[in-house]
């Protein structure tokens, strides 16, 4: 006699033995990403650029800062210098690899710090609302009043050059937009019933923010922050180009573009190399963030 008990409330049969595995959030994001070949290609490109920058000292045997007047402005495809040489006779490939270190750091580190700082302020402003929100967001509005390039020039002009100051400048410029995105997302989540349900269970505000708010605010903020990486690289390059960022002879894509500018009539293609690197890197970051946005959409 089969002993099958049927639940009185659902009328359903007894459950199968063992845990049925259901995909987690990140697993389902990856599943959607796996068929997005453009995003995957760009992701691979970014990884390649990052790796080549990280391992720059082992990839070339030239000193990036040692100039040689005799070998100035060699063309691309030169037997010794694959990408030619710059206006001071330094191997361009070496300087591209070393410069990638600075440029990528300028793109990633300020965005990371700004995401943490801006995200925190945004979540606090969005969650508490009222006066707290007003104080934080109006302060951010002061920064919004200036165009970001102008603000960056003003800050870095007053702080002076150098890698650290340039990163500080970029962070300050990037905090307000991230804060705005985090605040909007938080105030939407804050009014959802599940936050009330958590409050009704006696949870502290800190616990609610960490378990319920941040997980929901994270994906819009991360997607937005990833678009800022390319903006930060461009901005950093721009500052270096203007002489407000990295100081020569340190290699940096923006600075290289700036110093090679004078030689554009002599070796136009060599001059375009740093610009091309900036272009490709920022497009790759933009496309990846676009793909991430689609993959991280829960209801898709």
């Amino acid at each position: 006699m089969a002993d099958i008990s049927i639940s009185p409330t659902t009328g359903s049969l007894p459950e199968p033995a063992g845990q049925v595995r259901i995909r987690g959030y990140w697993e389902s994001v990856w599943r959607r990403l796996r068929y997005d070949y453009v995003t995957l290609f760009c992701l691979a490109l970014i990884i390649l650029i990052v790796l080549s920058a990280v391992f720059a000292p082992w990839l070339t045997h030239f000193d990036p800062d040692k100039s040689s007047i005799a070998n100035r402005l060699r063309p691309i495809g030169h037997p010794k210098y694959i990408l030619g040489t710059d206006e001071q006779g330094r191997d361009l490939l070496t300087r591209m690899l070393w410069g990638g270190r600075i440029s990528l750091m300028m793109g990633i580190v300020p965005v990371l710090i700004a995401t943490l700082v801006g995200g925190m302020f945004g979540v606090v402003a969005g969650y508490y609302g009222g006066k707290v929100n007003m104080i934080i967001m109006r302060t951010m509005d002061v920064f919004f009043a200036f165009p970001s390039v102008l603000l960056a020039i003003a800050i870095s002009g007053s702080l002076g050059g150098g890698i650290f100051n340039q990163m500080l400048t970029l962070t300050v410029v990037l905090v307000p937009p991230i804060c705005r995105v985090a605040e909007t997302a938080t105030s939407q989540v804050r009014n959802m019933d599940f936050v009330d349900a958590a409050r009704a269970s006696g949870a502290s505000t800190i616990s609610i923010i960490f378990s319920h708010v941040i997980v929901n605010v994270m994906s819009p903020v991360l997607v937005y922050a990833s678009t800022l990486v390319s903006a930060a690289i461009l901005l950093a390059s721009g500052l270096s180009f203007l002489g407000l960022g990295v100081q020569p002879p340190t290699a940096d894509w923006g600075l290289m573009l700036s110093t090679l500018r004078q030689s554009i009539y002599v070796q136009p293609i060599v001059c375009a190399v740093p610009g091309l690197a900036i272009l490709v890197t920022s497009i790759a970051f933009n496309l990846v963030s676009d793909g991430l946005r689609q993959a991280m959409d829960v209801k898709a």
């Binding site: 599940f194 949870a203 929901n216």
Partner: peptide, 19 residues
């Protein structure tokens, strides 16, 4: 809107007792 879209339901239920 009364369930956290980013938590598996089991964790949503377990949250109160955890707190």
């Amino acid at each position: 809107s009364s369930l956290n879209p980013r938590l598996p339901i089991q964790e949503s239920i377990a949250y109160g007792p955890r707190v």
